[in-house]
Amino acid sequence: MSGEGPRYTVEELAAKVGMSPRNIRAHQTRSLLGPPIRRGRTAYYDDSHVRRLEAIKALQRQGYNLVAIEAILGVRAPEPVGEALQHLLQRLDREQPGLVHALARHGVLVRGDDGSVQMLRVRLMRSALGLNRAGVHAVPSLQVLSEVLDRLRLIAEDLVRSTSQRLVSATPSLRAGPTGTWDELDVRADALAISMIGLLTEAFRVALENFGTTAMPDLIAECAGGGQLYLTGSATIDNG
């Protein structure tokens, strides 16, 4: 931090950028925001932190989630992919730029410094492209993935909020409010968030497995009978 220019405590920084101190500390934990400089027991931020937080907020307003923002700002490195997937990304970029942008907003893809499209969520992309085994081409698969992520985003927000409230109300030590330092509270909140995400992920997997495997044959027959079944479509891009 430069010795010149204004300095801000975390509360002053939060007021200046319109963000809670908790969110500022969370961005530090994710390495989206650089650490402050401590003077005694007080941590100070400067205008470089203000600019960084404003950039994060601007990207969030454009619909990017934190995973995508991490990649855009150089915090998260894209996962390596094989030659076939890289070739597919190049073709998607040329022929389906809108789809690439939609998936980038969810942190599935990101555009690198050289302008190329890269994957952040290789396992998710492989799952979508795995629909090829049922005759579904790449573009319809990825369009469905984008639509599912749009729908799940709202569901996830509701589930996280309601589940968090339920967990806090059932845990007296959490319900009592902060009793230690902010760092201790952040560690505890992060541990709770990770555990809750694991719970919701596995619960959703079980719910899908319980319903999907038994219902899919009837759903396919119903759609096919109504002339609504489009497995292969006329996409110009396939998995090959």
Rank of each mutant, 00 (worst) to 15 (best):
R51L: 15
L53W: 02
A55L: 11
L59I: 04
Q60G: 03
Y64V: 05
L66I: 11
L66D: 00
A68L: 04
E70C: 15
I72P: 08
R76T: 12
R76K: 03
P80Q: 01
E83K: 01
L85K: 01
Q86R: 15
Q90M: 09
R91Q: 13
G98S: 03
L99Q: 00
V100L: 03
A102R: 10
A102V: 11
L103E: 00
V108S: 04
V108N: 03
V110R: 00
R111C: 07
V117T: 13
L124N: 10
R126I: 09
A128E: 13
L129T: 06
L129H: 12
N132V: 14
N132C: 11
S141C: 04
S141R: 15
V144M: 15
L145T: 06
E147L: 14
L149T: 12
L149M: 07
L149V: 09
D150T: 15
R151A: 14
A156S: 12
E157N: 05
D158F: 09
R161T: 12
S162P: 01
T163K: 06
Q165T: 06
Q165I: 08
V168P: 00
S173P: 00
S173Y: 01
L174S: 08
A176I: 04
P178F: 05
G180W: 11
T181R: 08
E184D: 14
V187F: 06
D190T: 06
